[in-house]
Design a protein around this nucleic acid. Structure first.
Length: 318
DNA sequence: AACCCTGACAACCGCACGGTC
DNA sequence: CGACCGTGCGGTTGTCAGGGT
């Protein structure tokens, strides 16, 4: 429970992040919190249409709003932006969210980027309120997308599926050992994924050892707003790295994700469950391995191409 | 009518990271 | 090199509407 008193605190409070910098927050004197009024929305939307986005910290003052910059940005990004699609999540969107979550985990911004008009916040909320419960009711762990009942799971899946589901769980730290990461199974999963990555990138690049090494991680670096993100990220990096990031076009990102999303195994949940009961399938291994990339397990092809430097890989994944 | 409970989702918070000075 | 700024992300909390008692 948040203490209501903090909303009307009479002292200016700031917190410090790990780098020691001040992080202004909405608890500053005189700043309004809580739901936005139509008038505030109008002020914000009008100002941004006229002056453009950015400089969020000073925007409220310039726009005549008594809100913190973060609050303004959030309101614009999640609600006021013209491109934001309101209304019920369609069945096909729901299906896509499920597939992407299986691939990417709680990378809401990445997931949102694949669903036009939907924001990360909206998808996150929808997941927590609808989809996670739906999966649980189907006996599926929403975090791992594996059967909840350990009795029905293959031995090698028990470790990750026997826990109580926690939809809001933090993505595991790659540095913290994962049961799967220390096993032969991990090695096998990694090799399958490595083969799949190799196959994919060999089909899409002429220079294997260069492209493979950077391709997948570049893809994960891409976001919905791929172009914008590239523009931002490419600033201040070397030419060589810039060239690598240029591999990360929207087309490549799309086609690779689509190639994973459209795997037959994704299309039938019961079929997938049966495969898991009978024994791990290649598609399942691919899913697990792909998921592992976003959740901290290690893929040999990735690490080998990052000079055995998990930190660098992790940096790219994050 | 009043109260309680629950679900949905908007909003907030802490943190991380890249860039700039 | 360190301090600070701007921004984005994921997790958590607050608010409110609607239904049940």
């Amino acid at each position: 429970m948040r203490n209501p008193a903090t909303a009307t605190a009479t002292t200016t409070t700031t917190t410090r992040n790990s780098k020691g910098s001040k992080t202004p927050c909405c608890s500053k004197v005189g700043l309004k919190r809580g739901p936005w009024t139509p008038d505030e929305d109008e002020l914000l939307a009008t100002y941004i249409k006229k002056e453009g986005e950015g400089r969020w910290r000073t925007l409220p003052k310039r726009a005549g709003l008594f809100r913190c910059g973060k609050s303004c940005r959030l309101r614009w990004m999640n609600y006021l932006r013209p491109s934001v699609k309101r209304g019920q999540i369609a069945p096909d969107e729901e299906d896509l969210i499920l597939r992407l979550h299986r691939l990417l985990g709680n990378r809401w911004s990445l997931i949102a980027g694949r669903i036009p008009g939907r924001t990360d916040n909206e998808i996150k909320n929808y997941w927590n309120t609808h989809l996670s419960k739906k999966l649980i009711s189907q006996g599926i762990d929403p975090r791992t997308h594996k059967p909840l009942n350990p009795q029905h799971s293959p031995t090698h899946l028990k470790a990750s599926s026997s826990s109580i589901p926690n939809p809001g769980a933090t993505i595991p730290n790659p540095n913290i050992s994962n049961p799967a990461s220390s096993s032969l199974e991990h090695a096998r999963r990694g090799q399958v994924m490595a083969d799949k990555e190799n196959e994919y990138f060999q089909n899409h690049y002429q220079s294997d050892d260069v492209a493979i090494g950077h391709g997948f991680t570049s893809l994960l670096n891409c976001d919905a707003s791929g172009i914008e993100m590239r523009n931002n990220q490419s600033q201040g990096i070397s030419n060589e790295e810039d060239e690598d990031i240029n591999y990360c076009t929207d087309d490549i990102f799309s086609s690779f994700l689509n190639s994973l999303i459209n795997e037959d195994a994704f299309t039938n949940q019961n079929q997938l469950q049966q495969q898991q009961i009978n024994g791990i399938s290649q598609a399942d291994t691919l899913i697990a391995s792909t998921l592992s990339l976003s959740q901290g397990w290690e893929s040999p092809i990735i690490s080998s191409n990052f000079n055995q430097d998990p930190k660098r890989l992790n940096d790219h994944l994050n």
